[in-house]
Design a protein around this nucleic acid. Structure first.
Lengths: 121, 121
DNA sequence: CTGTATCCTTAGCGATACTG
DNA sequence: CAGTATCGCTAAGGATACAG
C-alpha cells in the first residue's frame, strides 16, 4: 500500500477540482446577489418588486438574471398569477430552503465578527 | 411607541443594506476564489505554490490578489522566510479560522445535494 | 407591476512571459 | 520559488428608458 490514506474525492476534491460538480454549485452561490436573493425568500414567497427593494442596489436586469439562474438550478420557483396588474411570486424549492441553513451560518458569523475585520486599504 | 417591533439592524439589515458593514464582508467571501483559499488553509500554513496547485485553475495573478485581499481584511497572514530560494507561507489568523466553520457548512451542504441540482440550461 | 432592451463601465479572470 | 507585468476577453454590474 501507499501508506497514505487515499484522497477521498467526496471530501477533498468536492470543491477544489475544476471539474467537480460541487465547484459549479459553489460558484453559483458565491455571487454578489445569489445568496442575498435566497435569504430574502426565507420567510415565504416574495414578489419581484419586494425583492428589488430588499436587495438594496440591485437593478431589475440583474435581479432578473439572478432569479432566472436560481430557477434554472432548481432553487427557486417562479409563479405567474394571471391577474392585472401582473403578479409574479418567487419562492424557494425544498432544495432552496436547504440552502438557507448554510447561508444563515455565514450571516451569523459575519454579524458576530464584523468589528474584527480590517477596513482594508 | 410605534407598536411595531423596530427592525433590528443587527439581524435584518446586517447584509441587505448597501451601507451595512456586513455586506462588504459578505461580498469579500462571496467570490470565486476567496472561500476556496481560506478552506485550503484549514490544515495549516501553505506556500504560494501549494495553494496554486490546490486551487485548480487559478492564475498566479489572481491568487496573489485573492491572498492580498484576505490579508488586508485580517483573515490571513503572509510570512516571508529569508531564505533562498524564497519561501512564503500563508496562514489563517484567528478570524480566518473562524470563517472555516460557516464555509465547511456550505461545503457539506453542497456535497450532500449535488445530485439534486438541475444542470442549468 | 414585471420585466426587457440598451448602453456603457468595471472587475474578474485566464494565459503567458518574465524578473528578483 | 514567488510573484509582477501585460494583454485581451467576458461576465457582471449599474443606469435608465421603455414595453406588455
Amino acid at each position: 500500500m501507499t501508506g497514505q490514506t487515499p484522497e477521498d474525492p467526496s471530501t477533498r476534491h468536492d470543491i477544489y477540482g475544476l471539474l467537480c460538480p460541487g465547484r459549479a454549485i459553489f460558484e453559483l452561490l458565491v455571487n454578489k446577489w445569489t445568496g442575498l436573493a435566497v435569504t430574502a425568500l426565507e420567510d415565504g414567497p416574495r414578489r419581484f418588486g419586494e425583492l428589488r427593494r430588499q436587495l438594496e442596489g440591485v437593478s431589475p436586469k440583474v435581479l432578473t438574471r439572478t432569479l432566472r439562474r436560481l430557477e434554472d438550478h432548481g432553487l427557486v420557483t417562479r409563479t405567474v398569477h394571471a391577474e392585472v396588474p401582473p403578479r409574479v411570486e418567487y419562492a424557494l424549492t425544498d432544495l432552496g430552503r436547504g440552502a438557507l441553513e448554510p447561508l444563515a451560518h455565514l450571516r451569523t458569523w459575519i454579524r458576530a465578527n464584523t468589528g474584527r475585520f480590517t477596513a482594508a486599504r
